[in-house]
Write a protein that binds this DNA or RNA. Structure first.
Length: 503
RNA sequence: GGCGACGUCGCCAAGUGGUAAGGCAGAGGCCUGCAAAGCCUCUAUCCCCGGUUCGAAUCCGGGCGUCGCCUCCA
């Protein structure tokens, strides 16, 4: 079974055959560091994090390169507004970007080159382009000549003449052609600058990706990724520069992610309808945000809303449920269920099959252009079967004899989710977060006199089981009400009271 | 105006030729002292109109609608 990917260049799904049978070289456009990234930007980085993790899981040795564009008009303008050096602004938001990525559970790139550390190589590429007639200098600026490259427009499916007929192309009489774009810009007073054969200046946008990807990965590399709004002009221009300069194919597979929308409109900084990633993560845990995004195919548009995130949180709880139940059961042998009277073999067969089915379907769907929505459905299928086994079937078994199978089921749920970077917190409680009031509760209801909140909760649990066994409903319900007021979730399962906190 | 994508259950969303995954919400049932959780059952013929085919949500043509790119943008 081969992996298939949708290649923007050909607009079809193609069999994925990397240049090296065991290795994958991929490059994903990183941020221009002039601000905090928003949740829409994060979606793209998440998409390619999943792709990278999956390819790794499938056995490829993946080299993942992501640039940081730390010199650009937007950075310069923003820094000027704040009256600080451009480099300082860039450093601030580079650090913010890295920590936000870490918080979202994005794996670190294999290498993360900075534009400002690659200036000599960029100058080298401009020189090559001038030497081969693909670029020309005008008063210290250097432009790429789009008409010198016959393939211009092949990635985005555009025709130079069609583009020119559009009225929005800015006319600059210094260019040979309105579509020609800057490779090198003369520095204005106060702007960052580097010496070059054309005077002091800085590189134009697009150039850094061409140079860094080639330097880090060599041509042609396997996967070039980014959001769909980068197809034109950014990736089209990268491609033109690189192929014109080297005469080689630039990239084997172009992958582009769909955009995040708000009210059916693209989320973007210029429209002002964005939410910063760090603000979203302050309210929703990482796995919930990731699950939310993985429920839609990466190439489709995705509507952002807190309602959607709330639903994802509920879905997350559904997945976490059986894993928690298993953890609780393991900790408390005294509360093991009595095994079902018969039919255990049927249940075992059924769950065993469900584990295998989940893995097979997960792989099949992910192989098909990283269909995370379908892959997730496979996981939910196993969640249902595990729940059924625990609560309708034999459960853990009178002597824990079904534990190994349940552990395998739990692993069958956790492993594919881990490939998607979704870590399930199966701990039934998070001790550090217990509210202090629980100590008083334990003293009141369970006579607990210690100082350990974890022991206090355990004492409450036992006290409530006793109250229930004595059919003392007023006490049992009172305890539940008080605990719920403190944020605990109290559930009476067949094996006794479950008390969890921090959902 | 040019190029491209999309339109599937109340909401979200997989599925690209063989008769519709999953999540959320809802209804009924089981379980339960009550509650919660869980399990079971139920709710779609796939924007509209034609065409191709033994057979289409899936292919082709037309229409309507939405979005993206053409300017910085993940």
């Amino acid at each position: 079974m081969a992996i298939r990917v949708y290649n923007t260049m050909t607009r079809t799904k193609e069999a994925f055959v990397p240049r090296d049978p065991e290795k994958v070289a991929m490059y994903v456009c990183g941020p221009t560091v002039y601000n905090h990234i928003h949740i829409g930007n994060a979606r793209t980085f998440l998409t390619f994090d999943i792709i990278r993790r999956y390819l790794t899981w499938r056995g490829y040795d993946v080299t993942f390169v992501q640039n940081i564009t730390d010199v650009d008009d937007k950075i310069i303008n923003r820094a000027a507004e704040q009256g600080i050096p451009a480099i300082e602004l860039a450093e601030t938001f580079t650090a913010a970007f890295r920590s936000a990525m870490a918080e979202l559970g994005i794996e670190k790139p294999s290498r993360q080159p900075m534009a400002t550390q690659t200036i000599p190589q960029m100058i080298g590429m401009v020189e090559r382009l001038i030497a081969t007639g693909h670029a020309y200098e005008v008063d210290g600026d250097v432009y790429f000549s789009v008409r010198s490259f016959p393939g211009y427009g092949k990635l985005s499916g555009r025709d130079i003449d069609d583009l020119e007929s559009g009225s929005r192309v800015e006319v600059d009489t210094r260019k040979n052609d309105p579509l020609d774009f800057a490779l090198w810009k003369t520095a204005k007073p106060g702007e960052p600058r580097w010496p070059s054969p054309w005077g002091e200046g800085r590189p134009g946008w697009h150039l850094e990706c061409s140079v860094m990807s080639e330097e880090e990965l060599g041509l042609p590399f396997d996967i070039h990724g980014g959001a769909s709004d980068l197809i034109f002009p950014h990736h089209e221009n990268e491609l033109a520069q690189s192929e014109a300069a080297t005469g080689e194919t630039f990239v084997k597979y172009w992958l582009h992610g769909g955009l995040l929308q708000v009210n059916a409109e693209k989320m973007s900084k210029s429209l002002g309808n964005f939410m910063l990633l760090k603000d979203v993560l302050a309210v929703y845990p990482t796995p919930v945000v990731r699950l939310f995004m993985m429920q839609t195919h990466y190439r489709s548009p995705l509507e952002f809303s807190t309602d959607r995130l709330d639903e994802a949180r509920t879905a997350y709880e559904r997945v976490a449920g059986p894993l928690r139940d298993l953890e609780i059961a393991k900790r408390s042998r005294a509360r093991e269920r009595v095994a079902g009277d018969d039919g255990t073999g049927v249940w075992v067969t059924r769950l065993t099959k469900a584990i295998a089915d989940c893995r097979a379907r997960f792989t099949e769907d992910m192989d098909d252009d990283f269909n995370t929505a379908g892959a997730l459905a496979a996981v939910f299928g196993l969640v249902r079967e595990m729940n059924a086994f625990i609560w309708e079937g034999p459960g853990i078994g009178a002597h824990g004899e079904n534990l190994p199978l349940l552990e395998r089921a739990a692993a069958g749920i956790k492993e594919p989710l881990a490939v998607l970077g979704i870590e399930i917190d199966a701990h039934p409680v998070r001790v550090a977060e217990y509210p202090e009031e629980v100590m008083q509760l334990a003293a009141d209801y369970a006579g607990y006199a210690g100082s350990d909140s974890s022991e206090a909760v355990d004492a409450l649990r036992k006290a409530r089981d006793v109250a229930r066994s004595e059919r003392n409903w007023s006490v049992a319900d009172g305890m539940r009400d008080r605990l719920q007021e403190l944020g605990f979730v109290v559930e009476d399962k067949p094996d006794g009271t479950h008390i969890t906190y921090g959902r």
